[in-house]
Amino acid sequence: MKFCDILKRKEFVVTCEFCPPKGTDLTEMLQKTELVRPYVDAINVTDNQRARLYPSSLAVSRILKERGFEVICHLTCRDRNRLSLQSDLLGVHILGIENILFLSGDHPLLGDHPESKPVYDLDVSQLLRTASHLKEGKTLSGKKLQNKISLCTGAVVNPEAEPQELQILMMEKKIVLGAEFFQTQPVFDVDKYRKFYDRVKGFGARVLPSVLVIKSAKFAKNMSKVPGIKIPEKYIKRLERAQNPLKEGLKIADEIILALKEFSGGIHIMAPGIEENIPQLKI
């Protein structure tokens, strides 16, 4: 089912994300997806997350689809030119994947192949427009396709990045260009997110704020180096003091989830490497 239809049907939607393994053995990942199955409406599959090499998000999305999950396949502009992006979008359709999340993609300099040539032939706005063309049965260069493809297209917004006004403008722009839903970078400051949410809730595209489960102080400090992620000192202190940091991290996530639940139309959970704990959260 299209994620857009799930959004229409349900007032509160939960998604989570999986990064494919560093290799080709999906056993552990698939076990973890079974554990979260009852709790989530869809699973995001990341695409060379943080500019590090992993198996294709298309391939892994298809495997999850075959197992009956709704999937949101990530597609970044970093590694593909306009030919390759369109080719993959047609491929996504052939594979029966109905939802796609467009990202510009962390710069290769931040990843594990820093020497590589960054592509960014299209940006996310242009990719959204390109997807609209494909949905109408034509390519970016105006050539006719055999058929139209159907896809539910999403994009990312970072509510905590300053200037926030600029993020809001970008969001409006992406909606006009065809973004049907948004997922955010991790939210830690719920008050700030709420102010953002109040400004964008009338835009007509559902926003799922991300909740990142921080399993240890070390992990939190490392994640703070990732572009777009700001983890407040108070949470890092709590993890440092905790007897059981994972438990404390889950508690912090629960506090954020409860606060978000008061107004948000859903959440997106990121628990990298510790997805088996998602069922414990108060979602």
């Binding site: 502009c77 960014y120 706005s125 600029l166």
Partner: peptide, 27 residues
């Protein structure tokens, strides 16, 4: 750093570029 034509990426923060926090995000 990404040659984007339609505005900043999600890595921009406090006016700085995701690639190098000493560089201004041109957007």
């Amino acid at each position: 750093a990404k040659g984007l034509l339609n505005g900043p990426c999600g890595g921009m923060n406090e006016g700085k570029c995701e690639v190098n926090s000493e560089l201004d995000c041109v957007w």
